[in-house]
Amino acid sequence: MKQNEKILHIPKIDLGIVIDHIPAGQGIKILEIISKYEEMKDVVVSLGLNYESAKLGKKDLIKLQMEYLSPEIIQHISIMVPGVTIKAIKNYKVHSKVVVQPPKEIKSLLLCKNPNCITNTEKHVPTLFRTTDAEGKKVKCNYCERIFDLHELETVV
């Protein structure tokens, strides 16, 4: 069976968002991220796992029946699972697509792990981190200037 025929196993959408090229096993992780956002509560979501992929060997795929994915959610996905493709579908066709890369600046998402950082006492101050390496695995707090591994930081949502 060809790859395209397999993809048809989850419903085609005339209008929506497809998150493609998710490394196999990471689809659940993206689903977890999405489910944290209130605005996604009533959105119809289809998740496909372990499709064959020329590029990745195996991949996961998510379809969202909604018109617009917020920049906050895209930022969140790009940090946790960089390299996925996010496509906007209109009339069953790809209208636009973007390969998301870890951002240079991460706003209002990560919590600083340094208990003495001012963002942990002045809770109304939005956090801001900047990546310090090309892969985006290390981030520096704009305030206390400490450097952390991205994966050790918790998120606000």
């Binding site: 003495n116 950082c117 001012i118 101050v125």
Partner: peptide, 26 residues
């Protein structure tokens, strides 16, 4: 201030020049 990043925050908040005279261990 003992909190790290305090001077940076003050600088963002204020239109006046801010001089950091020590923010915690930072």
């Amino acid at each position: 201030h003992p909190g790290e990043g305090t001077a940076r925050l003050a600088a963002q908040e204020s239109y006046l020049p801010v001089i950091n005279a020590g923010d915690g261990a930072n």
